[in-house]
């Protein structure tokens, strides 16, 4: 258990890096949004991992149990999940608007259309 003590953090970092790579390298705006939501999930994983206590149960107070995981990260992440959907919805709204205006949601095509208009 000593060696794998940090395993959850590593998975969370790996997911964050997948998300980051997608946001940087993919040109398609919807794909970028998918990468962003994977990045957000990785942060959730980090927080919930911090809240976990070995051998504890969910933080619902009951006389039969004495050890609970920390409720505070759970609350923060509940809020964060809902906020992440809100940001995703705004992003999708923007993507649809860009598609309607430019006829494409690929990064490079939008850029070339912009340049053509400037010239």
């Amino acid at each position: 258990m000593e060696i794998l003590g940090q395993f959850n953090y590593w998975v969370s970092i790996a997911l964050a890096m997948i998300g980051l790579y997608t946001v940087i390298s993919k040109g398609h705006l919807i794909k970028k949004l998918i990468g962003l939501s994977i990045f957000q999930t990785s942060v959730f994983l980090l927080f919930i991992t911090i809240g976990k206590v070995r051998g504890a149960t969910a933080p619902i107070i009951d006389p039969n149990f004495s050890s609970y995981s920390s409720p505070l990260p759970h609350v923060l992440i509940l809020t964060a999940i809902v906020v992440s959907v809100a940001t995703l919805a705004v992003g999708i709204g923007l993507a649809i608007l860009i598609k309607r205006t430019y006829g494409s949601i690929e990064d490079d095509e939008i850029e070339s259309i912009d340049k053509a208009e400037e010239n």
């Binding site: 919930i48 809240g51 206590v53």
Partner: peptide, 10 residues
């Protein structure tokens, strides 16, 4: 990881 409420929401 004991976060049942988060699991519902997710």
């Amino acid at each position: 990881l004991d976060a049942v409420d988060v699991a519902f929401t997710e």
